[in-house]
Design a protein around this nucleic acid. Structure first.
Lengths: 102, 102
DNA sequence: TTATCATATGAGCAATTATTCATATTTAAG
DNA sequence: CTTAAATATGAATAATTGCTCATATGATAA
């Protein structure tokens, strides 16, 4: 195939696709997203359930929020997080499914 | 939800899911896989078409091969690579599609 | 064999990243 | 206002990663 005959992805698309996968490439983030796909959670609950430090969870939530994959809701002293991107959750669940039933 | 009531992912599943996404989280690997999803290519062709050094391409191909995402076929001095994991290509194309039609 | 083309590989390096530790901020209760 | 609880944040660090450069390997042709 000649160079001109290829269908190319634009640099921006490639960058955004890789960013999407990068978000999902960390075990802690996967656990957080999967947990949040089951229920809205506050930070300490996530930390306890997943056995990750409060600080690490908070850092990852800030990261996930910056990509609009989760959203936050305050209620008193507590902040509840939940998923905010159905497509990314679908992508995650599909991949889990595929790997579980190799 | 009580800790015991959650559906948990095993550590092995989480690790494998994150590895899968990690493979797809690099722009060069995305370009290579997308190119190989269109046609079987030799190493130099990939390097030229994508404007990446021969060495970088070869390193990434070795990486992709170690995860069995691509396979190699020798013909004389030339080695032709092609995709060897339909599911990962599907995952990639779905994500490209989603981002292109945000 | 020797020369050359195609690809692979190892060392080194700069950049990124996930975590920890310490501390700051925000909110509510007393 | 003070204290405590919940969360956020910044600096530091160790680990990982993707590339380059130089060189090695493998295959073919002369």
């Amino acid at each position: 195939m000649r160079k001109d005959d290829h269908h190319f992805l634009s640099e921006e698309i490639v960058e955004e696709v890789s960013r999407t996968f990068k978000v999902l490439s960390d075990p802690t983030r996967i656990k957080i997203l999967y947990l949040l796909s089951q229920e809205e959670c506050n930070v300490n609950h996530i930390a306890e359930v997943l056995d990750v430090s409060q600080s690490a969870v908070s850092h990852q939530l800030a990261f996930l929020k910056s990509y609009r994959l989760v959203k936050a809701r305050r209620q008193g002293k507590t902040i509840y997080y939940s998923c905010d991107d159905e497509h990314v959750i679908d992508l995650l669940k599909m991949t889990i499914d595929h790997i579980e039933h190799d």
